[in-house]
Every structure is written in C-alpha cells, then in structure tokens.
Design a protein around this nucleic acid. Structure first.
Length: 492
RNA sequence: CGGGAUGUAGCGCAGUUGGUAGCGCACUACGUUCGGGACGUAGGGGUCGUCCGUUCGAGUCGGAUCAUCCCGACCA
C-alpha cells in the first residue's frame, strides 16, 4: 500500500489525467485551458450542487444570479482586489464581427469597439456590491444572504484539468451584515458548512483554519479555508470563506441607517467552492482501477451486471434484478442495471470500477438457481455471495460502511503524514516527501516568503479544529518566538 | 513571460542513409464466445500542425509560425 502510493506519486500527474480520461469525466476543450465536463462527470457535480444547495438553504441563504460581464470601472474600485485579479482577466472589447474585406473569413469589426470594456467575471464581488448598494438602505434590509451558482473565467498561465481551468463552475456566496461580529460569524459558519460537506459527503478529511496574510483572498481581512491532502501528500485548498470587513462596502459606498439613525458601512463575507472539488475527489480516493466514489456522492450507488448465455437467461435474471432494483430504490438508493447485451461481464466490471460505483451486484444462472447474488465493494475490491432475500437491508448497511471506510482510509493516510517539525534542516528534508509539517512560525509574511522561496512550501493554514497546537516555541526559519504551530505543505 | 519537450487515423505510438505511410486499441460486418477488460476472418478510416525553402522527389533536411504538454512565476 505504502509502496503503491509512493510509486504513484512519482508519476501522479500522469496517473491523475489518465484516470480522468479513462473514467470519462472530462476532457480538454478546443478552447485554451477550458474543459468539457462529460455527462458522468457532470452528474457528480450536480450531486455536489444539490447537497451544498440544501446546506445553504438550511443556513438561511437564497440563490440569485448576477451578470457575466463586469464594466471595467466597477472592477477597479477596490484596489487590492483589482491587483489580485488584473493579471488573469478576459476582456471584451468589441461587440460585432464582419466579413473580412480581403476575403480572409471573419474579422472583428473595428467600428464596434465598446466605449467601456467589459471584464468576464473572475469572481463577482464587484458587480454584486454595486448591486447591493441599491438593495440596502436600512438596518431592516440586513442581513443579505445570497448565493450564486455560476461560471467564472481566470486566464491562468498554466491550467490543469479540474484543478485550474480557465473557465470553471462554482458557487459564490456574498453576504452583507450590520455588524462585524455577524459577518465574522457568517465566515465561520460557512467554512464549517464546507468542512461538514467535505467530511460527510466527499469523505474528505479536511483541516479548517485561517490563511496567512500572503495566501489571503485579494481584498479580504481574513480568509478561512478547508485544506485537504491528496494521495501524493500535496495540499489542495478545497474551499474558502472570506471575511471582507468593510472594504467592499467602502469601495462601493454601501451604507445603511442604523436603529440609532446613523449612517454605517455594512460588513461583508464571500465564500465559494468549485469544480476543483471533483479533482479533490479523484486524487484523494482514486486507485489504480479508477475512481472510488463515496456512496453519498455517487450518481449510481449500486450497479447490477447480469451474466448470461442465452436470451432466456438474460430475461429471467433481469426480472429478478428489476425486483431488487425496486426494493433498493424504495430505500432511497440510486441503482443502474447494465443490460447491454453486446458487452461481456468482465468488461462491464472493469468499466464500472473505473467510474467508481460503490457497490456492484452480479447475478448469473448459478445465483438465479441458488437465490443468491455476488456483492462487490469498490473501496476494498472484496467480493462475497449473499442471499437475495432481504438484500436491500444489507446493501444499506454496506453503503454506510463504504462511506465510513473511504473517509477512514483518507483520514489515516493524512494522519500518517502529519508531523511536528522543529528543525530547519529536517524541514527541508521532509517537506518534499509529501507531508504536512506542523511548525512554529513568527507570523511575518517575510518569513513565510523566505520559506516558500527555499522549499516551495507554503502555510496551508493556521489550524482551528484539527492539529491545533497552541504552545510556545521558536520559528522554524527565523528562530523568533511563536505561540502556535501552523500547517506547512506543498500545494497544488 | 523564461527553461525543456512534442505535433503522423478517434486515442496511444512507430517510421532507418530523403523514394510516395504503418502498428496497437477503438470502429463496421459475419461467425464462435459470454462468472474479471474474448477470439477469428474480412473491411473502413490520413492534405504527416501550418507556411516557406532545398531537392527529380520531403513525414524525414533547413527556416518561420501556430498549438499542446511538462518545469518555474500566478492561482479556487
């Protein structure tokens, strides 16, 4: 197991893109750095969306939609924000094409130049805050708790399928509050929603914590994160929740009249997760046979493969399967019967494993006669023959067990790769071997930068729920005093 | 934008000293198969990334250009 992981991480990037392609989740588009999400991949995303959306609603949020295009002037109001995104924006300058007078196809009509360029949103803070300005006048209008499901475009220098594509799908929550306290609570609440989602649905153990100032979102006073570890020991930022203070309210002049009749700036948060979560899922749980999907998230939880020689056998087995399917669906499970008669069973087994379906049931003439079915679980690849009678009850338990086991496996893996480190020599040695190192840090951006320059490692987070070690010590690099350890790692 | 590599069938690749393009997978048809990615037979599929040059002749040599991937800087 350990060897396998080490071996895999040597060529992890290759393994990962192979897996995506073979499992048929997504592919590179003809458009630079963009991806086509294929139906099965999109089904996984939809399930994430539905689950998260329910969690947002349960915490009092509602959905809205804001425009794709942001006038350049809006975008430049918050200085830090623009500095953070300026280098990676797609800009619309014209609104019409024409036939080339020299007959070379279609060209941009120079007469159709826009007076003010439009920016394709890299994130929507600016357009949302310029809208909120009109929505907010009194303390009675607060809080505003909106979420948007959308696509955004960031013209990254280098792209990677799922992890960093030029266009990606995400949700972005944007809230406005009367007090700093409320906004900070919201920031905490939402990072906790993400942590629950990651742990309970993605079976992804994450560390909740604060970002260091260097890693903070452009324009935020505080950024909270959920950090996950992939199977090669690298860190992946899986979701963020930002406390924006009054920066955007001041830039966009969003004020309300308080109960006392005074004009006050509102307090803001924003929070988001993206299709990157699918990359996290693939890299955290996948094995050499393909994807391993946690049952809570799998678009298909149980797949049934009939094994037959003759059409009569096929029919008889399918009859039994439809019966079983009904019983499983009554329990709330999603079930697929693979009744394709042009493919052999072995091929189907391999294919559904590649797609990560948690449980596979195979039934052939032998099973039909004996009233049994072969049950295969994706996480451990174990097979056993079980009685058909009352199977729906054992499947329910099995799915729960798989969910728990996938989490435990990822959790144990991470535990085995987190350690305290107090020596700079040791740090340099170990950080490249796929570990999270808990180290003392003096709290200065300069030290963090120096460590990054020397080792590529960054502070993944200042942990708040796992690995909290508040204790006196000395900075790993500068030797200056520190009152707590932070998590260092190499990030994707 | 710096450093490296690669562009040949849908995908993965081979192609020698320049001589008119091939292999595996996939695809189509028929037959035999079917409890862990079947096999046989017969087929279909290509302006060799693009442009210019050298040559009787270029996938192959030279130049330019475009694109993609990897390593840096940037990033959810």
């Amino acid at each position: 197991m350990a060897d396998q992981i080490t071996k895999r991480s040597e060529n992890y990037s290759q393994w990962y893109s192979d897996l995506v392609m073979k499992a048929d989740l997504a592919e590179q588009s003809a458009v630079r750095g963009c991806m086509v999400i294929k139906p099965y991949g999109y089904a996984i995303w939809e399930k994430m969306q539905r689950t998260l959306d329910d969690m947002f609603k349960a915490t009092g949020h509602t959905n809205a939609y804001f425009p794709l295009f942001i006038p350049k002037s809006f975008f430049s109001k918050e200085a830090e924000h623009v500095a953070g995104f300026a280098k990676e924006c797609a800009v619309v300058t014209h609104h019409r094409l024409m036939n080339d007078p020299e007959g070379k196809g279609v060209v941009v009509d120079p007469a159709a130049k826009l007076e003010e360029e439009l920016i394709v949103r890299p994130t929507s803070e600016t357009i949302i805050w310029s809208t909120y300005k009109n929505w907010i006048t009194s303390w009675r209008d607060l809080p505003i708790l909106c979420n948007q499901w959308a696509n955004v475009v960031r013209w990254e220098m280098r792209t990677r399928l799922f992890l960093r594509t030029a266009e990606f799908l995400w949700q972005e929550g944007h809230t406005a509050h009367a007090t700093s306290q409320e906004a900070i609570e919201e920031t905490q609440r939402m990072v906790q929603v993400y942590a629950d989602f990651a742990r309970n649905f993605l079976a992804l153990p994450v560390i909740v914590g604060h970002k260091s100032p260097n890693e903070r979102f452009a324009g935020a006073l505080d950024t909270m994160t959920i950090e996950a570890m992939m199977q090669d020991g690298k860190a992946l930022q899986a979701g963020t929740s930002h406390f924006l203070g009054q920066n955007f309210a001041k830039s966009f002049d969003v004020m309300y009249t308080s109960k006392e009749g005074k004009q006050e700036y509102v307090w803001a948060t924003s929070w988001g997760v993206s299709t990157r979560l699918m990359g996290a899922l693939i890299m955290a749980h996948g094995d050499d046979n393909g994807l391993v999907l946690p049952p809570a998230l799998a678009p298909i939880q149980v797949v049934m493969v009939p094994i037959f020689k003759t059409a009569e056998e096929h029919e008889a087995i399918l009859d039994k399967m439809y019966e079983l399917k009904k019983a499983l669906e009554a329990k709330g499970h999603s079930v697929k019967i693979d009744d394709r008669d042009t493919l052999r069973p072995g091929f189907k087994f391999a294919e559904w494993e590649l797609k990560g379906v948690p449980v596979r049931l195979a039934m052939g003439p032998r099973d039909l006669a004996a009233g049994t079915v072969e049950v295969h679980r994706r996480d451990t690849l174990e097979k056993k023959t079980m009685e058909l009678a009352g199977l729906e009850n054992s499947i329910e338990g099995l799915l729960d067990d798989i969910q728990a086991n996938i989490y435990k496996k990822a959790f144990d893996f991470r535990e085995s790769r987190v350690e305290k480190c107090d020596s700079w020599e040791e740090f340099k040695e170990k950080i490249g071997t796929g570990k999270f190192l808990l180290c003392h840090w003096d709290g200065t951006p300069e030290t963090e930068q120096a460590i990054k320059d020397a080792t590529k490692a960054t502070i993944r987070c200042i942990p708040e729920d796992s690995f909290v070690c508040e204790e006196e010590g000395k900075d790993i690099f500068s030797g200056k005093p520190s009152s707590r350890r932070v998590v260092f790692g190499i990030a994707y």
